[in-house]
Structure formats: C-alpha cells, structure tokens
Design a protein around this nucleic acid. Structure first.
Lengths: 149, 149
DNA sequence: TCTGAAATTCCCCACCC
DNA sequence: GGGTGGGGAATTTCAGA
C-alpha cells in the first residue's frame, strides 16, 4: 500500500469506471501494472468491492434513521449482531463508547419501517432501551473520505 | 424505475463491474437495452456514481466516530453545513430529530483526529455542545440495503 | 513487480422494429 | 423503448526482463 496504490484507490473511488490507461497516466504506470495493483488490492481486501452510490429516495427508501440501543442484561452480544446484520433495513451497526451499546443506521420506505424494525428487535428480546434520531436532511453521505482529488 | 431498473441497481451495487451481457441475462434484456437503462439511471441521478467499497483500516483510517452536535444560538445552519461538508474527516452529516441538531460521522487515522475535528469546529464557532461516540467495532457497514440478491 | 504486445471481450453507435 | 450488428476501444493474458 504505497502512494500509487492509495492514488489508484482515490481515483477509483471517485469514478470506478475510469480506464486503466487514464489511471496509469496519473500515477505514472502502464495500464497492465495498474491492473495488477488493482487485482492485488482486491485480493488483499483493501478494496472490498466495486459498487454504486445510489440516491436512496430514487429507490423508494427516503427515510434514514439512527438508533441508539442498549441490550437487555441477559442478551448475548452475538445474537444481537447476527440479527441486526441480516435485517434488511440495516445499513450500519457499530458497537460504540458512551452510555449506549450500539449505534444502528437504518433506511426505510416510511416511518412505519422504523416502528417495524423496533418491533422486530423487541420481539426477539434484543433491546432494552433505545433512542431514535430521524434524519430530516442529509448534507453529505459518502463512504470514502475526501482524498487529494 | 420499474422492476428491471431496480434489479439492475441491485446487481451493480453488488458488483459494479458486471458486464452488460450478464446483467441482461438476469433481467431479460439485451446488453444495449441494459446500457440505455443504466445511462438513464445515471442521468436521472438515481445512480450517483460508480465507486469502491474500501477497507478503512487498509487506507490508514481505522477510527470511526459519531458526533452529536448542537450549534451556538447565533450560528447560521448553512455555515455549519458548508464547513462540515468540506472537512476531510467527514463522511456523513445529517440534520436529525431529538435533542441534538446534527449527527456527524467522521473517519480518522487516530484519536487525535477526533480531537482535531472538534477543535476545528470550536475554532470556527460552529459548535456549542457535543457528544462523541467512538466505534469500538463495526458489525456491518454498507451504503445499500440488502435487496433480492 | 513492471513492460509490451497479442488475444479477447466489451462497449458504443447507427439503424430498424 | 428495445433488438441487431459492425467498428473501435478497453481489458485481460502471457511472454520476458
């Protein structure tokens, strides 16, 4: 993971469809050398996958919410993680410092979806207390920090 | 945005390098018809861009934190948004319901980065009170909900 | 690990349904 | 909107260094 690798990731994060030749021009490598580096970055796990950035509203999921959760005393952390990880509404789940145990980011079609998610967790006895923050508007939402673009 | 469009987005979100032909096989369209739909999805903004999912640790940014913020009484919301949107550490910024005004997700190389970000906001007089939650571990982190994959 | 060229695949465009 | 086919560009693979 040297400067070239980092630069290649920057360029691909900005536009994953850039040609190997144009990447090579920037980093000073031949197209096949760039290709070989990308292959290694994928193999090592540094690049998890090539994907899309989608407008949530356009695919019918305009509601974003953050849920702070504490688990019941007797609940296994693994049970909570497994359930949340596989729930369709969940985008992110982090174990966090502070007065709450988990921070869960969800995306739903409407407010009913939030209620349903809470009901699901309660039904599974995976939640003791929670606080939900609904996103009224989103200023920025990216999965990759601004590099030297 | 019909079933085919939705399916195309699902497939590309999973692997943005799939060929038009293999997508066409799944949705029952010719490669050029798939291409035309993708072009329209990009033009309409439903697809924002083709990008990467990167392992944060691999690029030297292992620390993820969530910051709940309230602004000083006399601060313009736009000033806060502009500053935060262009800060290199910021991944997300949402205006949220509840006792806090904004929820900001940041990613840094170390804990010093969190402190620096808070100092930056304080220096700009864009913050009155805040609470920071550091992610100890992350169970799931995706930008796209589980579809019919 | 990179280079360079050959082989292959894919994408794009014009035309027709 | 969607299908078909040809031309051109891109990726991929495989030598060699």
């Amino acid at each position: 993971m040297d400067t070239s690798d980092r630069k290649i990731i920057d360029l691909l994060a900005e536009d994953a469809r850039r040609s190997l030749a144009s990447i090579g021009d920037v980093v000073g490598l031949s197209p096949s050398a760039v290709n070989e580096r990308i292959r290694r970055l994928v193999a090592s796990g540094a690049i998890r996958r090539f994907t899309l950035e989608v407008d949530p509203a356009a695919i019918g999921l305009p509601i974003t919410a953050f849920m702070l959760v504490t688990l019941p005393q007797d609940t296994e952390q693994a049970a909570f993680r497994d359930y949340v990880e596989n729930h369709a509404a969940v985008l992110e789940c982090h174990h966090v410092t502070g007065s709450w145990s988990y921070m869960v980011k969800i995306r739903t079609a409407d407010l009913t979806g939030i209620e349903a998610f809470l009901a699901d967790l309660k039904g599974e006895r995976l939640i003791a207390r929670s606080e939900t923050m609904i996103a009224l508007s989103t200023t920025s939402e990216r999965s990759y920090v601004i590099g030297s673009e």
